[in-house]
Amino acid sequence: MGKRVLLIEDEPNIIQAISFILSRDGWTVDTHADGRTAMDEVARRRPDLIILDVMLPNRSGFDILADLRADPGTESLPVLMLTARGQARDRDLAERMGASRFMTKPFSNAEVLEAVRDLVTA
């Protein structure tokens, strides 16, 4: 397959875990940890899927999602959102703002892998 995933997340250990799971499944994984420059990174990497954390330094994942959906180039790009806050309010908000999928940490590896495959082939 060789498709590209951009992982926007700031916890080093979680970055390592997701990168490991996805690259072993044949995905190319780029990572980025800062909220403010995330949009530039999307434009540069042109990924097939974005995994987006909610609590990022300098800029919230929700703001980035809004930007993605407002841009014609990325409005239909699949976005998998992750959050550790685990409140129902966040899930509603994410869905209304057009996240393709919303998952709460901690997740099971199989679930993540399945969601990524689903979203890219769909």
Partner: peptide
């Protein structure tokens, strides 16, 4: 609290 607890738990579970 949720965030602070879940973050390390995520890594533990994933690995």
């Amino acid at each position: 609290i949720s965030h602070e607890l879940r973050t390390p738990m995520t890594s533990i579970r994933a690995f």
